[in-house]
Amino acid sequence: MVTDHRKLPRRRGEALNAAIFQATLDELAETGYARLTMERVAERAGAGKASLYRRWPTRLELVMDAVYEVLPDPASTPDTGTLRGDVLAALRGAAEVLAGPAGE
């Protein structure tokens, strides 16, 4: 049963973006990029298709923003005491994220 998104409480800003990004990553994990559609992401996020197209004109832009959202912040690299340790820790963090749906 599909719920009409217009009858749900209205979300805006970060709450809406978070739901859309999560729906995008879930859809990527389930169907892959080739079969990902804006319609399915909107349905999964409980949002209107128009709200997606207003923010992201293409699915490529949507997927890129969703992936960037889950990647570690480069400004907050761990301080291990050595440059080599810092770089390795940052790369391991990025590799963990990219091993999931964001990397597919």
Rank of each mutant, 00 (worst) to 15 (best):
D26S: 00
R55P: 03
R84D: 13
L83E: 09
L71W: 11
A75I: 11
L16D: 02
P78S: 11
P72V: 14
E104Q: 12
I20P: 02
R44F: 09
G103E: 07
R6P: 00
E69V: 00
T3N: 11
R6M: 07
L52H: 05
A42E: 15
P57R: 12
A102R: 00
V63M: 04
R35S: 10
K7F: 06
V67D: 06
E104N: 07
L62N: 04
Q22V: 07
G13D: 10
E43L: 02
D26V: 00
R10L: 13
S76R: 12
L98M: 14
G100P: 01
A90T: 08
L71T: 03
Q22G: 10
A66M: 03
S51D: 03
L71H: 04
R55L: 01
T82W: 02
R92V: 07
R11F: 01
T58V: 09
P9M: 11
S51I: 02
A102Y: 02
A99V: 01
A15K: 08
T58Y: 08
L88Q: 13
E27M: 01
A18Q: 15
A19E: 06
I20A: 05
P101C: 15
G93R: 15
P72H: 15
G85L: 07
D86L: 04
R10Y: 06
D4R: 14
E96H: 06
G85T: 12
A19F: 00
E104S: 05
R54H: 06
E27G: 01
M1A: 14
A19K: 05
G81P: 15
L60T: 15
M38W: 03
Y33A: 04
L8Q: 14
A89I: 11
P57C: 03
F21L: 00
G13L: 09
R84H: 08
A15T: 07
A15M: 12
T24E: 05
T31E: 15
A95H: 11
G103Q: 06
A95T: 05
L88S: 09
R92T: 09
A23I: 03
R55K: 14
V87S: 14
A89T: 11
A42G: 09
D65Y: 02
R84M: 10
G32Q: 07
L91C: 09
N17A: 05
K49D: 08
R6V: 02
E43I: 02
Y68R: 04
A42K: 07
L16K: 14
L71S: 04
Y68M: 08
T58I: 10
N17Y: 00
E96P: 00
L16G: 07
G46Y: 05
A90H: 13
R35P: 08
